[in-house]
Design a protein around this nucleic acid. Sequence first.
RNA 1: GGGCGCUUAGCUCAGUUGGCUAGAGCAUCUCGUUUACACCGAGAGGGUCGAAGGUUCGAGUCCUUUAGUGCCCA
Length: 843
Amino acid sequence: MIPPPNVTGILHMGHALNNNIQDVLTRVARMQGKNTTWVPGMDHAGIATQNVVERALKKEGKSRDDLGREKFVERVWDWKEQYGGTIQGQLKKLGASCDWERERFTMDEGLSTAVREMFCRLYDKDLIYRGNRIINWCPRCQTALSDEESEHVDVEGALYHLRYTVKGEKTKLVVATTRPETMLGDTAVAVNPRDERYQNLIGKTVVLPILNREIPIVADDYVDPEFGTGLVKITPAHDPNDFEMGQRHDLEQINVMTDAGIMNENAGPYEGMDRFECRKQLMDDLKSGGLVEKIETHQHAVGHCYRCETVIEPRLSPQWFVKMKPLARPAIDAVNDGRIKFVPERWNKTYMSWMENIRDWCISRQIWWGHRIPIFYCDDCNHEWAARTEPEKCPVCSTGNFRQDEDVLDTWFSSWLWPFSVFGWPEKNDDLKFYYPSKTLVTGNEIIFFWVARMVMSGLEIMDDIPFDTVYIHGTVRDDQGRKMSKSLGNSIDPLDIIEKYSSDALRFSLMMITATGQDVYISDEKFEIGRNFATKIWNAARFMEMHSEGFDVQDLAFDPTTLSPDDQHLLAKLNEAIASTNDNLGRYRFNDATGVIYDFFWHSYCDWYIEYAKPILFKGSPEEKKHTLQVMHHAFSTALRLLHPFMPFLTEELWHGMDYNYSIETIMLAEWPEKIPTEGIDPKTVTYVDGKHDLIRVGRILRAEYNLANKQTAVFNVRPSNALYAEQIEADKISIIALLKAESINVDVAFAPEGAMPSGISTLGTVYMSIEGLVDIDAEIKKLSTELDEVVGHLANVKKKLANENFTSRAPKNVVAVQEKRQEELIEKSKKLKKMIDTLQG
RNA sequence: GGGCGCUUAGCUCAGUUGGCUAGAGCAUCUCGUUUACACCGAGAGGGUCGAAGGUUCGAGUCCUUUAGUGCCCA
């Protein structure tokens, strides 16, 4: 399920992240053999698109009115054909594996049919109505907006305290307001009925300054005695609360502004002024009349248009609304009873609080680009009706003298139908049956209300079923200072630049790696290096294999499980762990963990350990040994490649072909998704031994590093294994240890005792001594070992203290206690060894 | 005002149902390159987990208070 991006949009990092996650999920499901579909689409983005085209017209010195409705809409379609949908190409660059032939546009014929169908159904159920109410009006776009489209921004404004005169008295009242210009539309002053200060005022009349209109003083519970002076001016036509109060007290509603936010004829001397200019002039006038008590600075939230950031003007206006409460009830149940799950879960609360306090949705827009409201009015008999198709005559009086409503619908009125409209609804077909409901919706938290919640409501209303069972909410993409990426800040990082600089795979992999579940993502250019470096690493590993694979048949990977070397077993065990962990993490939407596991397997298990182990064999081994090792390598590599594919589609596809893995399945996209591989021939004890061997090599390397030995400087290592089994295993495995330690030779001896001073260290398999030519820095050795001893003694004290605590031994789970006991043993053993080593050095 | 995050190494972040010595990448320092990769390899240093209480045998993790910071809603 793809959230349709705006037709005007270009790809930004948020899209990249969002589509990347969806693509990963889709690719995994596809490789698992599931019938997947990922429908790409575009949203006509009514206001945004209309704005873009209007701006273009303005450059030609024209307005939309110059063209007229029909020509203008044509013009928008032209624009759409020419410039729209750049984002589709960009998504392809990102590697989004959508079903491109299914691509839909919210204004295409099918979806428009769905929109009209939906409107008529809701209208017939009385869930859509026309009402004269206070709505959010954008004076620049000159249209109504829904509550969600008004963005509240905290601004440092002012609280103006104005003096009104009580009629027939000298008493002045002080009312406080943040929008003094609306005073011109005041039709009352209100106090709280329990406010003792003003009991005597209730029922009196006030003379409105400047206009000298006489307005009543009313009592209403809504008034907060604590706010300002406890007296508020009532402007029913310009404030939702005042509107409510106006209804209760039967007050006149006086609109003082035009659609463009210019003061109208009701504003008296201010007619023709811009609303903010009027505010200034009005305040000047009141000041000179001595009618201003004071002006305080005041922090408050002011609504701004989400498309053009103009300050919203709440105003009375006849608009179309959807009754939301009946639709919300089943949508609340669906989340409450767990049919729909949010990941992370905390978004439940956000969803619920919105649903439970839902208000009717204003769906009419006074623009031209969009689905025209399918309501018709008969001029002869005044009949009003909704029609799915263009009517020929009035159904009541049968005349053709009717007209369609001028308004168009909110863009989201088409978006909320997406989960079923793209499959042909209202038609009932196989696609719709098969693909509805879908599985996972992936989206950012900013459209939970706009889109997610509404899709749940429409799905339950129309399909009688949830549209998806999981809503994965990913974080917001921010810059490295935590700011939201935006054009106006100039801090956005263009994904296409990143693709250009680091590759698409690098972008994708890096994004996934830094996306912890639902956390915001902070981004800077350097973060993409991790993906690029990883891709290069894999490329080079493949190159290495290719160099040694001449004459090798990648179709012949059936190695004999009884001949697996310890390192073979270790690699395959790690591969199994990686597969299991990747699947587990993907199932829990933990993408950073999933990519981390794959990264770790390739880089460390495969490259750092296995390839280094394999080198002596590939360079100097027998043809049989070589073949066996290559079998293991290609087996592991081709499996891990499939695991990586959803995250790095381009590189993995390229290598799939380059390494000739495409002999049976042409594309890695359809190759089998890795599940646990057979563990035949893998002995867990051997795997543990190899872990110990790695530790031994690490200890040896530390010794080399201490003495700054160059790679070519030879050193003889002596190993005193802790037991006979280890001695046997190490002895049998010497070649690879020698190679990895760049040693001249290794002596394995359970009774080894150093002659004279030798640098040494303790590993899980035993003590490692390095014989080097030249002087050993005895003091430094002693100091090193003493420091280590101190640490061990410290830890030992802690462990002993724990085990001596009866509360711990009796209450903690047995396995936890056992671990501590084992650790105690190990630490005692280690401290003994260290003491002995120090003694030896001290002679 | 209400709700939700975040605070862990110099930086950016992981850390799942409380349980081995708190991890990674980057950066820093040391060493290394005739044989896949400097977009590399080996190693090192670096953290009283924002603060204060509490629960618990045991807290980065749970609870309370608090500071700073960010987002959403009113």
